[in-house]
Design a protein around this nucleic acid. Structure first.
Length: 396
DNA sequence: ATTCGCGGGAGCCTAACCGC
DNA sequence: GCGGTTAGGCTCCCGCGAAT
């Protein structure tokens, strides 16, 4: 077992999440997902081989942009097992895992223990999932903490994880960073998003354990039992997919287009075309929008989430003014600063200079071959792993 | 003619928020 | 802490146009 000091591996704004956790069909609230992301910043392993995540109160506050006292009450309630019946606590985060012995799916509770004391939150994760949470070598997706924290809807959060994990994998497999197409059956998506659950239906659980589940059959069964949600495609599209894709395009680095996938006249699934928003300036983007004070505040808030460990709010405001509130420029410079190998005397001066010269991690790579902290970088796997990953990915 | 997608919108219910 | 308001998740209905 590794020592705890080696396990606190994420110091920057990105965190890893195993694709098994991402693609597990199960329920999770927006709070549990965000707490998971934050928890990844300080992780240890205890004597029972369970992962323990520690989150300081001030991190919670900054991350959830809350100044009122209600946040703590909120988190206390979320950690209260006695309230679990309402379906609103972090203990209600469950994933479905393939049980190798029984040829079926078993539900696992992800967080088994939570303690909120002296302003610090401690989460203990199911020790059966330890190898899916820390020390990930393969089959994981790098997610941006700031992106995760800025997302409002749980559907967007899950869809982002699903599409990013699929996209990164496909990019690495094909060595093509362009646009890729992914197809999901409506029922598959609803299950992955946690909108519908298999509940106690053994037939459904057994079907889902198959390599190519018959989603039509599952849909029919859930329609009969009344457990299906958004029965009509248009409602699913309007209330879930459209909203999530809009938010995703607005707040994350992914660019997503989609269309219903027709069989006959019925739209039984969805095709997603996914690409990455590049820093390549296009003609459209070079026309600078006029920012209102509200826009500026929003940018300031977003940047504070990312940069509050290194800068005070006033300093971030100064940097914003220097960069004319160009968020991309500032983030590039910030990444550059974190990847810079030598020590930095005056961070704010360094940032301003980096912004003026439009330095980024890319420009640093040209100088130093191996940047210490690579952002948004998908680690290359061996070919053998790829075959395995591909199989898991294309199980639809 | 029928069936479906789609946009718009109403309505119900619950959770979250806010002022006191 | 309480009560009123607002927001979000979900379902249903309407009218139009397109596909079958």
């Amino acid at each position: 077992m590794k020592k705890s000091s080696e396990l606190s591996l994420i110091k920057n704004r990105d965190y890893k999440k195993s694709n098994e956790l991402i693609n597990a069909k199960g329920k999770g609230t927006i709070l549990s997902q965000k707490l998971f992301a934050l928890g990844m910043l300080h992780v240890t392993v205890d004597e029972t081989h369970s992962v323990v995540a520690t989150i300081a109160g001030k991190e919670l506050r900054a991350a959830f942009k809350s100044d009122s006292g209600s946040l703590y009450t909120h988190i206390e309630e979320a950690c209260d097992k006695s309230m679990s019946s309402t379906g609103a606590t972090i203990f209600d985060w469950q994933i479905l895992e393939k049980d190798p012995d029984k040829d079926s799916l078993v539900a696992r509770q992800v967080v088994t223990d939570a303690e909120f004391k002296d302003g610090t939150l401690k989460l203990r994760y199911n020790n059966k999932l330890t190898d899916k949470i820390i020390d990930l070598k393969t089959n994981y997706t790098i997610l941006s903490l700031s992106e995760t924290m800025s997302i409002k809807s749980v559907h967007t959060l899950k869809l982002h994880e699903i599409l990013k994990s699929a996209y990164d994998l496909e990019c690495a497999r094909t060595k093509d960073n362009g646009e890729h197409l992914f197809y999901f059956h409506n029922m598959d998506l609803k299950l992955r998003l946690g909108i519908v659950t298999a509940r106690g239906d053994r037939v459904v659980a057994k079907e889902l354990a198959k390599e190519y589940p018959d989603y039509e059959m599952i849909t029919e069964r859930l329609n009969k039992s009344g457990d299906n949600k958004y029965v009509e495609y248009k409602d699913f599209n309007k209330s879930v997919i459209k909203k999530a894709v809009d938010e995703l395009n607005k707040k994350t680095n992914l660019r997503v287009k989609y269309e219903g996938h027709k069989v006959g006249r019925l739209k039984v699934g969805i095709n997603f075309w996914v690409s990455k928003a590049d820093n390549k300036p296009t003609g459209k983007e070079s026309v600078k929008p006029v920012l209102s004070d509200k826009d500026k505040d929003a940018i300031l808030d977003d940047l504070y989430e990312v940069m509050h460990c290194d800068f005070k709010l006033a300093e971030i405001r100064e940097i914003c003014k220097h960069a004319d509130f160009d968020k991309t420029k500032i983030l590039n410079a910030y990444e550059y600063m974190h990847s810079y190998n030598s020590s930095i005397d005056i961070p704010i001066a360094f940032m301003k200079s980096a912004i003026s010269n439009e330095y980024s991690v890319e420009s640093l790579k040209k100088i130093t071959k191996v940047p210490k902290n690579a952002f948004n970088r998908f680690e290359q796997n061996t070919n053998e792993n790829f075959e395995l990953l591909e199989k898991q990915l294309l199980d639809n």
